[in-house]
Design a protein around this nucleic acid. Structure first.
Lengths: 223, 223
DNA sequence: TTAATTAATGACTAACAGTTATTTATTGAG
DNA sequence: CTCAATAAATAACTGTTAGTCATTAATTAA
């Protein structure tokens, strides 16, 4: 009874084709300016068919966002699998996030969607759960790494690894979003280099979190 | 020739009335779900009239956002005008931002709009400039305060006040946005209290920025 | 009183997300 | 091979909404 399986594969394949078409449009125009008709044309399908595979425009959008998260995950995985000492890996992880931003800023922008509760109105709960699950993967990677650094005595025990993760993440994200503004406000009006500011802020946070042992072993990370 | 002036006043008044109506709708429903017809009805005007006063829905939205920024500015002004020592004022400022978030989370959400370049498509350049100008006021307040702390020898000279401001701001904003998620993800799934995390991250950053003198004079701010 | 100017209206258009009745393609039984 | 049943895809359609514009109402100055 291989027919059902083949059909399942073909269905999955079609879902992927639709994502690919949606991706090219969404990355280019963003959620608001992209239209389902346009995506249908790019996918060489009718609009109705799109709705056989995805419940709403927002669902389809999130499916594309998840591809971006996948890219990010792979970058993170690679950056933390070099076998280097744990504090170096944490530093690598920060760099990897910044690399992701620089090379995939369109995906980075698409992700804005995810933390605006107002925009989630049209998203199906299934899709939302799939997203949460994928998030968890990324966060597990981050948190496990920080836990390791604590266990090895490099980061202070009184800060929970989750807290440390959120703090470092929020900080980097906030600064990269400033970089992503259309204008060059900070550079031009204020004479501030945001890339340098990002490095500084990560250094400040890590410096405040590191133990004495870490500061001795990684003098280059001390400010 | 007082007639022209009166007309000018009336026009300004009408603009305010429209903002008031728009505010009640936008705070409630957000940009996407609010409709211009609905706002027109709330303002007891026809939709056409709205467009005599504001160029687009997004322009009107930003006019409302600016009221939120005004509220924030006044809170910041008050928090930093108590005559207390400068490091206490910086701490007050952080608290004031958090208070703003707690008491005006709808405005806080509306402000998401401002750093998504994709959403700005429909905004007139005039409105954008007015916004930039109002931003500058808030930032001047923050940066001047930090500059004072540097001048008085409490914050390290090698960090520019603008950089310090952006870092503290990004960090707080990022964490408050996590708090603003519909779900209680961090609390429920990860057992992390975000309010505590916010305090911690601010403390970490300030600790890393403070001079020895500051740490001696403000032992409570040392971690 | 009236012509001219300004303010306001509401019917209209165009665009777009999402639906549904219909058509086309595929499958499996006789 | 035929044909009924099922699945996949379509395209015309609906409802909603941002934004426009021709028309009407109100105000002003001569």
């Amino acid at each position: 009874m291989g027919i059902l399986e083949r059909k399942e594969r073909e269905k999955e394949h079609r879902r992927e084709e639709i994502i690919a078409a949606a991706q090219s449009i969404f990355l280019d125009k963003g959620l608001q300016l992209a239209t389902m008709d346009e995506i249908a044309e790019a996918a060489e399908l009718s609009k109705g068919t799109l709705y056989l595979y995805y419940k709403s425009k927002e669902d389809l959008y999130l499916a594309v966002v998840m591809r971006g998260v996948e890219i990010m995950y792979e970058l993170f995985k690679r950056a933390t699998s070099t076998g280097e000492p744990v504090m170096k890996l944490i530093s690598n992880l920060g760099d990897a996030y910044f690399e992701f931003f620089k090379n995939n800023w369109q995906y980075f922008r698409m992700m804005y969607f995810r933390d605006n509760p107002r925009l989630h109105q049209q998203v199906s709960s299934e899709m939302l759960n799939v997203c949460l699950e994928q998030d968890r993967r990324v966060w597990k990677l981050v948190i496990d790494l920080i836990q390791r650094a604590i266990d090895e005595g490099y980061l202070q025990k009184n800060i929970s690894p989750v807290q440390a993760g959120i703090i470092l993440w929020s900080n980097s994200t906030g600064l990269m979003r400033q970089m992503d503004r259309g204008d060059n406000y900070w550079q031009e009006q204020m004479g501030v280099n945001l890339e340098e500011t990002l490095r500084l802020s990560n250094a400040l946070l890590l410096d405040a979190m590191m133990t004495e042992k870490a500061k001795q072993e990684y003098p280059s990370m001390v400010i």
